[in-house]
Design a protein around this nucleic acid. Sequence first.
DNA 1: GCTCGTTGCTTACCT
DNA 2: ACAGGTAAGCAACGAGCG
Length: 778
Amino acid sequence: MKCRFFLLDINEHRSEAKPTVRLWGLDDAGNRVLILSSMIMPYFYYVPGGQQTAESARQRIVEAKAKFPKILQVEVQKGKLLGRQCELLRVTCSELGVLSSYAKAIRKMLQGSCYEDDLRLSVRYLIDTELTACGWQDFEVQPLKSELGEQTVDRLFVAKSFPSRIVDETPPKLRVLAFSLLTAGERGSANPRKDPIRAIAVAVDGRKAEAFVNEGEDDSKAISEFIAFHNRFDPDLVVGFESNNSAWPYLIQRCKLQQVKLALGRDGSGPHTSLFGHVSIAGRANLDLSDIASGIPEIKVKTIQNLARHLRVPSVDEIETIDELERYALWDDTSNRKRLIENVKSSTAALLELAEFTVNFPMQLSALTGLPLDQVLAAAVGFRVDSYLMKQAHMLGELIPRRVEQPYFTYRGAIVLEPETGIHEDVVVLDFSSMYPTLMEKYNLSPDTLVKAGEKVSDDSVFTVPEVNHRFWKKPDGFYRTVLRRLLNERGRIKGEMAEAAEKSTLLRVLKERERAVKIITNACYGYAGWAGARWYAKEVAESAAAIGRDTITRTIQKANAVGLKVIYGDTDSIFVKDDRDRVDQLVRWVDSEFGLEIKREREYVRVLFTEAMKRYAGLLRDGSLDIVGLEVVRGDWSDIARQVQEQVLVRILRDQSSEKAIQDVRATIRKIKNGEVAMSDLTIRKTLTKQIEDYKVRTPHVEVAKLLVREGWELGVGDKVAYVIVRGSGKLFQKAKPPGGLGPRDIDVEYYLDNQIKPAAMRILERFGVSESQLAV
DNA sequence: GCTCGTTGCTTACCT
DNA sequence: ACAGGTAAGCAACGAGCG
């Protein structure tokens, strides 16, 4: 029989007779389905080295079969290794575990090299069958009587065919469960070894959020209630915030201690830490929405509230932010417990709402890259590209190289122009569309088309990159060219479909996220090529793209000047010119005919201000809004009060064109600070720990405060933001930095905030208008 | 032992 | 743990001074 199937999760199982892939998902009737497939056996490739032929290598392996009892088959095949045709052996084994050891042994015995022995069976299956994660496909299946015991699916099948893809982008209705833990430790961070879970909040569609509360020392009842609720609801998606590094490890540890079986998987297994440091639950997708927030640079402090605010999910606005440092005190005071519990319930309800808003993007990214939903959100950009390229390589008959430790080389990057400082009216930004991927595609920049240095080739068969002199074959199409062409076409295709789709339709929402996913992968290919961790690392490719980019922008600037356009600034793939429609049009046409590239009018500034620095400017757009780039306003490591004051100044300067009003505003703020009328939250400065505390060579405010917090029992690690204020006193700045908790505006160092926050932020702008610092005195 | 200019560590931004 | 280019603050260092 046939099963139309949407894939949610995939894993492999070793205990069964044959290596088996488990495909978890839904059918088109909304049943939860598990399909077992043993149709692909583990295998790897061997490419003979030296004089050896594939056939002679095959014989030697077969002769040595005593050493390789788990080999099922050795076949001679043709394949491609970085574009070069070669003969190779496909070595199929009966067990997963032997792949790398056999590959190693064969390499030792015969020289040559092995490929794809590093792929897990689930990855193997996804790649070979072109299965779409988070997408629909048809399977020929046979029903199976349940032999799995605890699994909780509605339908259990054995696959009788490979999947055949259905073009349907709309996901099925999924059951989503949001959860959060409430924990509190008497001193510092809650410690799962001694501090019980105080409450577990859950939220699912169609009911009010609830919490399983534990007021004593034994949280096993609350945990069991949570497990029962979870399994009764049987979610497809489990969402949390910071759950991968906080809630899940805590819960797992508590369960170990309390000897509660945390059987949340659809096969009865517990959550476990997986590939990208995320937590995986068999048969479901566990999503940590803080990963969504991390992908949005405008959100400086990654919280549920800030994510909601950014996405304009209004109901979340009323949720109180409770500082972790105050939590125990609130819990300890029983009159406040209810407030805490209500708080965690409402944030959990908010999480559920946010999941609705945000899940389409990771789903599309999953469908595109082939990484299962839970992995794709946790995986860094480089691994997403890696996964996408692996799928593409297989379709093109290319062997997939292994990730190797290799020396890393930097190279010269893009050009940034010194801006014409001051105010300019009527400025338009001209951007090259997808410059780097377009150049890579156009000039066939790819590891497999790179001509070895010193190799003699005819000049017209290759393209020679200006300045760096790398050469690339004009023919045939390289791997990156093929892949980028597909991506660029796909994006065009989606845009076409979007134009057809009904406004506010589900389809349009899905297409929008699909387009975003394609764009992200496309634009990451350049950086990926220059990343030493990439399977298809080729410094020359990235270096060449950058060099051609420099050449292109430089010549465009020359042409702009030649046609009488005044160039005010430029960075990498953009130039800012004083607007002149006809001349801009002329330049656009020239870029098209000279380079075959598209340059487009993008932002139009009524008025734009450049400070003396590159990458820092602010402009007034036609709709009256400000576009602020690089300045303190958009930096997360300045106090809010300094950012606010600078934004006010920019509004006064750009919109009202009045430095006098700006001065008045700054003075008003200075007065407020002096009077202690500015809230601590506006004075707080935050910086990220980018390494282990012990590894710092210099004493800085945020590291000193981090050390202090660690001494108090707080757990702080890489990636955490440290909040501090500067208090009155003597000595170095790092000696005056303190955690804001328990301090008031009277404790702060007013001089510091005026001299090192307010005035520099304001003067950065005002000094361009002849205002001196003394004019800010009150 | 102090001041002052320089160097280098550090973070966060831009494209 | 996609790239390089850039600004900016502050600690650390070392030279020069007395």
